[in-house]
């Protein structure tokens, strides 16, 4: 059994807690949060050991690994502390507010041979994995444009203030929503290295952006657009979609389906000329415990498998996440030009 602890019991932390709690190979021994309300609930209604000080949990609970789901500004300090105690670390996204710090932590984790993963769950979605396979087989030829989009209904009116609405703490739409889109672009098309024409728009929030629009240039020379808005109530929940356009066709994919248009049929992959639609039902495998989508369980299963089998290559490392942090930084500086 792998002994795990969780730091931060907000929405993602509680979700990870349930998934780890139901995992047959994991013994979730400790949970940690600074909210007395949340800790009271856990103390009263679960058998987990509860902490308000993460250092104390790491020092005393003899953990093998830790899941960090605290507000982003604490990630670097907590990850560092956990790595120093030789723990494998799963950290929520975005990884680090300061890109250089993120790179240092990625190097450190690698040097120590510790499993390190960031919660970019789109990498574990059957549809986006299918897109990656299709691109690797060069199905739509040389890409000349992409469009990465995420929309959802988070901030719909002017009110409220939590850590998410404070500037510089990783709380806006850029960190919360756009980070997923940027990481997905990286996963499928490559690393972003330059951005232009960035608009960070505050729609209802006072201090942070509610929408992000920009042109992103990748290392390969490919460019495309980013369009993200968390004040869009025409979506019931967060929706992420990617459109890839190549010389031989086009792919449009989201969490539920992959639509492929080919100018000519592809015999090797038995894809006809014109449109083909593939659905998640054919692209996803069952998980042992389902909570909100297969991808949330799959990413935790993957983290645990990587701990058990050191030869396994992690699919969402600190290093790849730090590239996303880098693009976030570029977007912020470009928007203030």
């Amino acid at each position: 059994m792998i002994r795990a602890g969780i730091i931060g019991l907000g929405k993602m932390g509680i979700s990870h807690c349930a998934i780890l709690g139901a995992h047959p190979e994991v013994d979730l021994v400790g949970v940690c949060d600074t909210s007395t309300l949340v800790m009271d609930g856990f103390k009263r209604h679960t058998a987990k050991e509860c902490f308000s000080d993460y250092k104390k949990m790491i020092d005393t609970a003899s953990l093998d690994c830790v899941v960090i789901a605290s507000p982003t500004k604490y990630h670097a300090e907590m990850v560092n502390y956990a790595l120093d105690r030789n723990l494998h670390v799963f950290c929520e996204k975005p990884f680090a507010l300061n890109h250089a710090e993120g790179v240092q932590l990625a190097d450190k984790a690698e040097r120590l041979g510790l499993v390190n993963q960031v919660g970019y769950h789109n990498r574990f979605l059957g549809t986006f994995q299918e897109v990656k396979r299709l691109l690797e087989s060069d199905v739509i030829g040389q890409l000349y444009h992409f469009l990465g989009e995420s929309y959802g209904p988070v901030v719909l009116k002017e009110k409220g203030s939590t850590w998410r609405s404070e500037k510089g703490q990783g709380g806006g739409c850029l960190y919360d929503y756009a980070s997923h889109t940027i990481d997905l672009i990286h996963f499928l098309c490559g690393k972003g290295v330059k951005v232009r024409g960035t608009e960070l728009k505050s729609i209802f929030s006072k201090n942070v952006e509610d929408a992000v629009y920009s042109t992103v240039y990748l290392e390969s020379g490919l460019s495309g657009q980013l369009s993200v808005n968390w004040s869009d109530e025409t979506h019931r929940k967060m929706n992420t979609q990617i459109t890839l356009i190549g010389k031989k066709g086009k792919i449009i994919a989201d969490a539920t389906e992959v639509k492929i248009y080919l100018k000519e049929g592809n015999e090797k992959l038995s894809l006809p000329k014109g449109w083909t639609v593939k659905y998640l039902t054919d692209l996803t495998e069952n998980v042992n415990f389902y909570l909100r989508g297969e991808e949330y369980s799959s990413q935790i299963d993957h983290f645990i498998e990587c701990i058990q089998d050191k030869k396994k290559k992690n699919k969402s490392t600190f290093k790849t996440a730090s590239y996303t942090d880098n693009v976030i930084g570029l977007l912020i500086s470009d928007s203030t030009l």
Binding site: C17, G21, H45, L291
Partner: peptide, 15 residues
């Protein structure tokens, strides 16, 4: 289901 399964995973069976 999202609540049932959340409580199930958390071990908050009394809820």
């Amino acid at each position: 289901n999202v609540i049932t399964d959340l409580l199930l995973g958390l071990g908050m069976v009394d809820f």
